Amino acid sequence: MKGKYYIQGMSAISPQHSFGENVFSQPLMTVSENVFACVEPDYRAYMPPNSIRRMTRILKVGLTAALQCMQDAGITVPGAIVTGTGKGSLSDTERFLKEIREYKETALNATPFIQSTYNAVNGLIALQQKCTQYNNTFVHRGFSFENALLDAMLLIAEGNKDILVGAFEEITAEHFYIKSRIGFWKKEKIASNELYQHPTPGTISGEGAAFFLLSDTPGEVQLSGLKMVYKPKESYLQKFLASHELNLEDIDLVISGRNGDSNFDHYYDGLPNELPFKHLCGEYDTSGAFALWLGAQILKAQQVPANWFPMLTVPAGPYKNILIYNHFFGEQHVYMLLTLNTGYLK
């Protein structure tokens, strides 16, 4: 989809120290158990202690990332709230199901059920900021965040302003076990910073939340293109670039979803100036949101965080066009194009 869409603010809570200032000077966080967990911030700066005590982890992560994003953009009430999630609050869902069995469908606590719904984070953001505008959540596995992003772009094309768009995901021990039974994760335990040196079936799991304030007001980073392709029989890369009057030589950096899974990594073979990101956050339905955050940060800083990629030869800048190519276990394929707005003056 073409148009003028600019990222005015952004925030990410991830397994890396991505929240706050000077994120690119932070050390690389690694795991050796094939399970990533978020580095959580101090929530007390964003919500009262009595609210923190009542909220589950995904609610705190999602709300805090959204509030920081709006703070970064300099607004308090967005024109709309649109999010994507593949699983929503897994911990609340599991707790509610366990209580159904434990109490034999009697005397159930309604709170886990209410907080387990996919739009719980959206509702919390709207209540906190008193936003009564358009509010929607997309749940489409590997297309969840991208459908939310597309909806935000359509809203802007219709004349709406300051759209808060984001994604959130969490992993639990039960969910990790279930997905391991069907081959999602590697059987052998590896260090996350050695992910690309182990081309075997499966990958490592992750989680995170990322939010963006999208507007048609000119800004430093422009979201120039978005394309979703379901189970393509051949690469759609050339067609996507051609639709934006570009070719591979015009792309300064390709942020890829390569994740060490030998079943699907062949989709990324041959990409120039490739920078894979899954060793930073792991694999999950809405990991594309972290990739978009990373690409936008690189464009703004005009540098790649060297600390986070010690195992790779980082393509040199300057960076004007960054392509993001990610897929979810070979089914949902996504292309996103970020462009540095050289005419923008701060």
Score class of each variant (00 low, 15 high):
residue 214 L to F: 04
residue 277 F to S: 14
residue 175 H to A: 11
residue 170 E to R: 13
residue 9 G to C: 13
residue 193 N to M: 03
residue 138 F to T: 03
residue 242 A to P: 00
residue 5 Y to P: 07
residue 119 N to I: 11
residue 25 S to T: 15
residue 56 T to K: 12
residue 249 E to P: 00
residue 237 L to T: 15
residue 276 P to S: 05
residue 26 Q to N: 11
residue 78 P to L: 05
residue 95 R to Q: 12
residue 248 L to I: 09
residue 259 N to D: 13
residue 177 Y to I: 05
residue 57 R to E: 11
residue 49 P to Q: 14
residue 173 A to G: 01
residue 131 C to L: 10
residue 169 E to L: 06
residue 231 K to M: 10
residue 224 S to H: 01
residue 39 V to G: 03
residue 87 K to W: 03
residue 130 K to V: 08
residue 135 N to D: 11
residue 53 R to V: 06
residue 218 P to C: 04
residue 50 N to K: 14
residue 29 M to P: 00
residue 279 H to I: 02
residue 29 M to F: 07
residue 286 T to K: 05
residue 131 C to M: 13
residue 201 P to K: 08
residue 28 L to Y: 06
residue 345 L to A: 13
residue 34 N to Q: 08
residue 338 L to E: 10
residue 81 I to N: 04
residue 141 R to A: 14
residue 109 N to V: 06
residue 11 S to E: 13
residue 126 A to I: 08
residue 213 L to H: 01
residue 291 A to M: 07
residue 11 S to I: 08
residue 309 F to K: 03
residue 231 K to T: 09
residue 52 I to S: 07
residue 28 L to W: 05
residue 260 G to P: 00
residue 340 L to H: 14
residue 344 Y to W: 15
residue 141 R to T: 12
residue 77 V to W: 02
residue 299 L to D: 02
residue 206 G to I: 00
residue 117 T to G: 03
residue 285 D to N: 13
residue 266 H to M: 01
residue 81 I to F: 04
residue 270 G to L: 08
residue 79 G to H: 04
residue 51 S to V: 11
residue 119 N to R: 04
residue 155 L to G: 06
residue 318 P to Q: 05
residue 244 H to D: 04
residue 293 W to K: 09
residue 40 E to Y: 13
residue 219 G to K: 12
residue 116 S to D: 01
residue 325 Y to G: 01
residue 19 F to W: 10
